[in-house]
């Protein structure tokens, strides 16, 4: 049985010099070592045995690891891991087709793998690097001339917070999709600009089973309004948080502040061409 201190990987902690530590978060296995003014960081993924609980523990030194080295002036012994969102938009594809009728709206809970930001220095002001907690595949959203590069993720698009999976390396993003057009909306995929979202955590000790979670990570709510296939959809990255029984604590801010009123094509209902050309 792991203790709570080990499982709470997001709290700041001091590392002994020249000792090796391992952090397990979903498929991510992160290794850390501090040698004088250097931080040594290495990581890999174990996709076969994904850990369902996060863990932070001391490990024996391994010689086979290829380290990335970060030199920091000043002998700081503390390291802080911060959950942040990916650096590019995430295109979420629904595993089952969803139709939203004209005039209707629906709230979906989609999950996105977090990235782990390693910070040291006074109050964690020095960022060493960001590491994805799971390998994400690349995708293209839009047409081949004017689209944008994004990460791809599949979701079951759960309809209630209790159903949203409580995975340690995934953040739950509430997305409300409204159809203001006169045609049914065939929701195949959503492009969420996660760089405009903040990460919150349910405060430890305030989890409620009826919400379905224990210390889960959340983002603020995304509102998408669909006006028609040829019109731009309206996206609003609100400051609202999905109401839960407990309270939230802010873990990280947005990477890029959102320019309100921005219109973007965020609902993909077109199938892109892959015609054979001899």
């Amino acid at each position: 049985m792991k203790d709570n201190a080990r499982m709470d990987i997001w709290k700041e902690r001091g590392l002994e010099e020249d000792r090796e530590y391992a952090v397990y978060l979903g498929p991510l296995c992160l290794r850390l070592r501090r040698v004088e003014d250097e931080w040594l960081v290495a990581y890999d993924y174990n996709l076969e045995t994904v850990s369902t609980e996060p863990d932070f523990l001391e490990k024996e030194k391994s010689d086979s690891v290829v380290w990335s080295r970060f030199v920091v002036n000043g002998h700081f012994s503390d390291i802080k891991l911060i959950p942040v969102l990916p650096d590019r938009p995430v295109v979420v594809s629904s595993e089952n087709p969803i139709m939203i009728m004209p005039g209707s709206s629906a709230l979906f809970f989609v999950t996105v793998p977090v990235w782990v930001r390693l910070c040291t220095g006074k109050n964690g002001t020095i960022t060493l690097t960001d590491i994805p907690s799971a390998p994400l595949s690349n995708t293209w959203f839009g047409d081949p001339l004017n689209g944008e590069l994004a990460y791809s993720s599949r979701t079951q698009a759960r309809r209630t917070a209790a159903e949203a999976p409580s995975l340690p390396n995934r953040v739950i993003c509430p997305v409300r999709v409204g159809n203001s057009s006169t045609e049914p909306l065939d929701l195949q995929k959503l492009c969420i600009h996660v760089e405009h979202l903040k990460v919150y955590r349910e405060k430890p000790g305030e989890s409620h089973s009826e919400d379905g979670g224990t210390n889960r990570l959340w983002t603020n709510e995304v509102l998408i309004t669909f006006y028609g296939i040829d019109l731009m959809s309206k996206i609003d990255y609100t400051k609202e948080l999905y109401p839960i029984k407990g309270t939230y604590e802010l873990m990280s801010g947005e990477r890029v502040p959102y320019d309100t009123g921005l219109l973007k094509r965020s609902v993909g209902i077109l199938k892109y061409f892959t015609h054979f050309e001899s």
């Binding site: 295109v91 390998p135 595949s137 690349n138 995708t139 293209w140 959203f141 081949p144 791809s152 995929k189 892109y272 061409f273 892959t274 015609h275 054979f276 001899s278």
Partner: peptide, 29 residues
């Protein structure tokens, strides 16, 4: 493959019955 895009989807094409084997094409973005 980490460099291959999910979308547009990879294309598999059966090109022809060749002299030495079945000619195929894989188109990946």
């Amino acid at each position: 493959n980490p460099y291959c895009l999910d979308n547009p989807e990879p294309l598999f094409a059966f090109k022809e019955f060749g002299d030495h084997g079945i000619e195929l094409m894989l188109g990946v973005w």
